[in-house]
Design a protein around this nucleic acid. Structure first.
Lengths: 345, 345
DNA sequence: GTAGGATACTGAACCGGTCAATCAACGAGC
DNA sequence: GCTCGTTGATTGACCGGTTCAGTATCCTAC
C-alpha cells in the first residue's frame, strides 16, 4: 500500500532511481513495463515507486511524448439550455467512461458562438492541451469543419456525415426512426401531424425534417414543421400556435424531450387532453419524458452508448484511422402520450 | 492576423528566436510582457509569433512552472441522475465561465463511488494534472475531506462548511430558504406538510431536513421527512406513500426539481389536483419547474453564480488563501403549484 | 577458448518552456 | 579618462519524464 506522498515535494523517477541505486532510464523502463531491466530490479523499482506514491508527471510525459492525454469538448449552446437537455450529460457520461478507462482526461468548455469555438480549437491545439476533439451540433455549411481541417486537429463530428467528407463522423440513422414514429401515428388514425423542430441550422434537424416530410408524403398525410431554437419559450409558442389553428394537428412530434414536456404543459394549459385530444411524441427519451403524466411516447436511443462510440472513434482517429461510423438507430417506445385519434375530430 | 499554423509542426519559441535573430530567453521575456527586451525587439518578436500562430506549449510551461492550469471536478452520481439534474450543468456553466476567462481548463470525470473519487484525486494530484478541485455533495463524516487534506491538494467544498474546518468551503444559507417555504405554506393554511428529501448522507440534505423540522416546530405544525436517493423511482414511491396515508399531507416540499416534477406526475396520476388537493414546492428551480403544468413554486437560487463564486474561491485557495465563503441565499418564487388548503380537508 | 548475441543497465540528449546569473554596450558623473 | 549603473540581450541550468546509443556482463555455440 502506498503511503501518503509528501505534499510539499512529490516523488519523481530521479528519487526512485536514487533509492534503487539505478539510473533514471532503468526506472523509466521498469515503470512502463518495457524490456531492459531484470525482473528483480523491476520489482524493486515498482515497490519503491509504490511506497513513495509515485505518479508520472503528466506535463513531463506530455512534453516528451508530444501527447496531451486529453480530449476536448466544446459546448456552444446557452448554459440554461444545456442544463436542461439531458442529452449532453448523458453523452458526456458515455464519453467520460470510455476516456477514463484509458486514463485520458476530458476537458470541457462552454463557448458563446461558433467563432469562439474555432478560436478555442486553435488555442487548444496550439497549446497541445488536447489530442483531439468531439464536435457536436453540426451545422449546414459549418465553418468549424474547414477550420479544424486546416489546423490538422484530430476530430470526430457527432451527428451526421460531413458534407464534403473532410472530417470523420459518427451518427445514427435518424430518418428511419422518424419514419417509425410517423407510421405509428398514422396507424393510430392521425392525418394531421406537426413537427416542432430544433435549430434549423443543425444538420440533424434538417435530416429529421426531411425524413418527416418524406414519411408524410408516402402516407398521403399533411403536416408542417415549425423551427425553434430548442428553448421552452419558442417551443411553447410553436405549440400554442399549432393548437390554435383552425385545423389543428392531432399529433405533434417534438425534437427534444424538453420541447415535448413544454408542449405537454401548453396543451394541458389550453385544456387539451393528452392523448385524447392531442398525441405527443418526444424525440429524445430521458427520464423527464417518463416522470411527467402521462409519460411520453419517445424515440429511445442509447445516448451514453452514442458517447462511447464517438469517443472510441475519436481515439482511433487520433491514432491515425479515418472513416465514418454509424451506430444503432433509435426505436420508438410507445407510452401514454399517444393514442388513437378521437372520433369527434 | 495569424496565418494557419503548420499542422505537422507547430511553432516553438526556438523557431521565433531563430527568425527574430535573438535568443530563446529574449523571446520568453517578450512574449510574457516582462522587462529585459527593447520595445522594437519585443514588437518584432510578437509580430513573428503572431505570424506563426504560436501558442505556448502547455506541457512545457506546466513542467517548469509546476502548474497545470487546470481545475478538476469529479461527479460521483449515476450518469442518469446527473443528466437529469439541471443543477450540475448550470453549476458547470458557472465554473467554466470563471475558469475560461482566466484560461484555466476544466477537467471532468465521472466516478462510481467516493473511494474511486479519492483514488482519482490522488492520481490527479500525483500527475499534476490539476491545481485544485471542487468537491460537491459533501457527506456527513466525508472521507474525502481527510484524504484531500492529507494529499495537500487545494480544494473548495461546495455546499456547507466542513465539520472540522479542514477544508475551505462555499455554501449558501439553506435553512432560511426552507423556513421561508414552510412559512409560506403555513400562511396558505397548510398544517400537514411533508418533505421528500435527497440522499440522507449529504450534508445539505441534513441541513434542510433540520431546518424544515425547526420551522415546523416553531409554527406548531406536524410533518415528516422521507429520504430518497434523488432517483425518480424513489421519489415517486415516496410521494405515492405520502398521498396514500390516512392523514395525507396537503403540501410537499421536494429537494430537487426532478423529484418535484415526478411528484407532480404521481399526484396527477392518483387523481389529485394540483394545487387544489396538494401543493408542491420544488427546491431547485430550473426551467423544468416552469414548463410543466402547473408551473412549480420553487426556491430560486442562481446556480450559475454559485459555480462562479465557488471557482473564484478555489482560485484564491490555490493562491494560498483560506477561509469559507457564504453566497446569496435562495428565495421562494411562488407559482401555480401552491395554493390555499382546500376547505373540505 | 573465443566469437557472437542477447541481456541489463548507464549516460546523455531531448521535449519547450522559465528564469537566475552573466555580460556587453552605453551614457552619466566626477 | 575612468568608474558606475542601467538597459538589452545571452547563456545555461532546470522542470520530469522518454528514448537512443553505447557499454559491460554473461550465456551459448562451435
Amino acid at each position: 500500500m502506498a503511503s501518503p506522498p509528501d505534499a510539499s515535494r512529490r516523488a519523481t523517477i530521479s528519487d526512485i532511481a536514487r533509492l534503487a541505486g539505478v539510473s533514471k532510464g532503468a526506472v523509466s523502463y521498469a515503470l512502463n513495463g518495457r524490456p531492459g531491466v531484470s525482473d528483480e530490479t523491476r520489482d524493486r523499482i515498482l515497490a519503491i515507486a509504490d511506497r513513495l506514491g509515485w505518479y508520472p508527471n503528466r506535463a513531463a510525459r506530455a512534453l516528451s511524448a508530444a501527447r496531451a492525454d486529453a480530449c476536448g469538448l466544446l459546448l456552444a449552446r446557452p448554459a440554461r439550455t444545456l442544463a436542461l437537455e439531458p442529452f449532453f450529460m448523458e453523452f458526456i457520461a458515455g464519453v467520460e467512461s470510455e476516456l477514463s478507462s484509458r486514463s485520458v482526461a476530458l476537458t470541457i468548455q462552454l463557448v458563446e458562438s461558433v467563432e469562439d469555438e474555432i478560436a478555442v480549437y486553435r488555442r487548444w491545439w496550439g497549446e497541445r492541451r488536447v489530442d483531439g476533439v468531439l464536435v457536436i451540433d453540426l451545422r449546414v455549411g459549418d465553418p468549424r469543419v474547414e477550420a479544424i481541417t486546416a489546423l490538422g486537429l484530430p476530430a470526430v463530428v457527432v451527428g451526421g456525415p460531413v458534407e464534403n467528407g473532410l472530417l470523420p463522423a459518427v451518427w445514427h440513422d435518424e430518418p428511419s426512426a422518424v419514419e417509425e414514429a410517423v407510421r405509428y401515428l398514422a396507424a393510430l388514425g392521425h392525418t394531421r401531424i406537426a413537427h416542432v423542430a430544433g435549430v434549423s441550422e443543425f444538420v440533424h434537424t434538417v435530416a429529421r425534417g426531411e425524413a418527416f416530410h418524406a414519411a408524410l408524403r408516402e402516407l398521403g398525410i399533411t403536416g408542417e414543421t415549425v423551427a425553434t431554437d430548442y428553448t421552452p419559450e419558442r417551443g411553447a409558442r410553436a405549440t400554442r400556435k399549432l393548437l390554435s389553428a383552425p385545423h389543428a394537428p392531432t399529433a405533434i412530434v417534438f425534437d427534444s424531450d424538453l420541447l415535448a414536456v413544454t408542449g405537454l404543459g401548453v396543451a394541458r394549459q389550453m385544456g387539451f387532453s393528452v392523448p385524447d385530444d392531442i398525441s405527443i411524441v418526444s424525440w429524445d427519451d430521458s427520464l423527464i419524458s417518463q416522470v411527467v403524466h402521462p409519460p411520453l411516447t419517445a424515440v429511445t436511443r442509447d445516448i451514453e452508448a452514442y458517447g462511447v462510440a464517438a469517443t472510441r472513434h475519436l481515439l482511433a482517429v487520433i491514432e491515425g484511422e479515418a472513416g465514418d461510423l454509424e451506430t444503432a438507430r433509435g426505436e420508438l417506445t410507445p407510452r401514454g402520450s399517444t393514442g388513437p385519434v378521437a372520433h369527434r375530430q
